[in-house]
Each structure stands twice: as structure tokens, then as C-alpha cells.
Design a protein around this nucleic acid. Structure first.
Lengths: 136, 136
DNA sequence: AAGAAGCTCATACTAAAGTACTAATTTGAT
DNA sequence: ATCAAATTAGTACTTTAGTATGAGCTTCTT
């Protein structure tokens, strides 16, 4: 938000400067009007592209990046988060247990509390929710 | 590609028309130069944003695009594919049955054959595999 | 040191998920 | 019209998944 204000302020400033410059050069006859128009057109084309890139980058990066802050917000413990990632990989409780060198009942405990925290009824729903929250 | 050429052709045409228009109005004194500049600036700002949006949509869609050809390669029927998408949404067999107006046993049949075709042991694994193959 | 939180594990359940058939219709293509 | 594939649905069964509860142990904080 602060950046947006700054960018627009600079934009308005540039516009005003350009006006003054163009008025001066047209009157003094140093440049003809076509050049000034072309410069303005190109400049604002670039500014348009730049602004759009900035606004479009936000969803892009937030889509690919895993949001570890969200994990904390949800109150997921380190182990629960670890189990969640294995669940999302399509492993069964038994397979996860073997992989993490613990018993299956331990995994069940983790999964149960993880489902509660994610507000999911099933592990498949937990996967979907986690994907939406960008935590996996 | 054809669209790009068309867009740029129209862009150049618009530019030329604008030049002629501006030259006329400035000389005739109907409008002062600031207005024309402002119009050009806003127009090209919009064009810049528009172009950028078009070019940035390409990688987005190509990354997310679902590979329907792969679905056929796997031998998934229309209904099986439909069920798969619901499974990936995190729904239970019972919920899918209600949503598609069929019995739960029908969904079970679909899921079973779908798992076979995807070479998955569980529905969670099917989700993972489907995601890798870009079919959901 | 005491308490809270996290990790572990067990038992005993209930509830889903998944398999293996069989079978009746329906649909689509030759 | 006929044959193959698809959709539907059922029964009976096994396997996972998930819940509830209690409990021992470790780690970190106050």
C-alpha cells in the first residue's frame, strides 16, 4: 500500500515535469510535437507494463511459495506439519509411521489433531485446504 | 501470434491517427497540449497494462492447464474422471454420491477402477499422481 | 523447580474406504 | 441390429482411517 502511494506520487511528478518540458520545447521549437508524443507514449507504455507486473507478481509468488507463517497461525506443531506433508504425498498412516520411525498410532494421533486444526473431516480435505493456504 | 500482429497493427494505426489529430488541434488551437499529453499518457498506460496482462497469462495457463489427452491415455472414462475431481476436492464417497445423484456403491466402483488405472493404492495417492500428470 | 506443550504409544472403538464379485441398463459405434 | 464399453447398483468382506481417552516422557519457559 505504501509502495503504491509512492509510485503514483512519482508518476504524477513525472507527468508534471513532462508537461513543463514539452511546453518549453514546443514553444522554443527544439523538438516537434510528434517526438514528444512518441516519448510519452513509450514511457507510459513502459509504466503500464511495470505497474501490471508488480500487481500480478503478488499472486504468483504467494502461489508458489509455502506460507510457513500460516502454519504457525494454525497452531500446527513441527511434527504435525511433517506428517501433513507425508499425507499429501499420498502415503498411508502405516507408511508414514515407517518413514518417520514411529508407531502407526502416533501417526493417527498426529493426523487427528492436524485435521482438527485445519478444520478438515478427512485427510483428502486436509490436502485440499493445505493447498489453498499454500502450506504444502 | 496472429493476435499479436493485429494488436500491434491497430496500435500503430491509433498512434498515427492521434498524431494527425493532435497536430490539427494544436495548430487550430481547439485543445491545448496538456490535454493531448494526458490522453496519450492514460491511453498508453492502459495499453501497457493490457499487453502485459496478455503476455503474462500465457505461462500461467500453460502451467495450470489440465492435460485432457493424458486422461484418455490412462483410459479414464468420463464418469471416472468426474469422480476423481471430486475426490481431489476432498469429498467422501457419500458426499460425491449425493452430488452426482448416484449411490455410494457406484462411487466406490468408480473409485476402485480409477485407482487401478492411475496405479494408486489410495485416493490420496491418486490425488498426488493426478496432480503430477496435470489432469486435475 | 513446576507447568505447559509436544511427542510418543496403547486400547477400543466407529466410520470410511477399498476389493471382489455379479448383474441389469444404457450408450455408442460398426 | 449387434457387440463392446460404460454406468449403475448391490452384497459381502477386508483394510484404512479417524475418534476418544489415558498415560509416560522430553523439552522449553517462567
Amino acid at each position: 500500500m505504501k509502495k503504491t502511494v509512492l509510485v503514483f506520487s512519482l508518476l504524477i511528478l513525472a507527468l508534471l515535469l513532462l508537461f513543463q518540458f514539452s511546453k518549453y520545447t514546443v514553444i522554443s521549437g527544439d523538438l516537434n510535437i510528434e517526438y514528444i508524443m512518441a516519448i510519452i507514449a513509450i514511457a507510459f507504455l513502459g509504466i503500464g507494463i511495470f505497474i501490471n507486473k508488480k500487481t500480478q507478481k503478488q499472486p504468483e509468488t504467494s502461489n508458489d511459495q509455502i506460507n510457513l507463517q500460516k502454519v504457525e497461525e494454525l497452531g500446527l506443531s513441527k511434527r504435525e506439519y511433517e506428517v501433513l506433508k507425508e499425507v499429501a504425498l499420498g502415503l498411508s498412516n502405516h507408511e508414514i509411521a515407517k518413514k518417520l520411525f514411529v508407531s502407526e498410532s502416533t501417526i493417527k494421533t498426529h493426523v487427528s489433531s492436524l485435521l482438527l486444526k485445519l478444520n478438515a473431516k478427512r485427510r483428502t480435505q486436509a490436502i485440499q485446504i493445505s493447498k489453498d493456504l499454500n502450506i504444502i
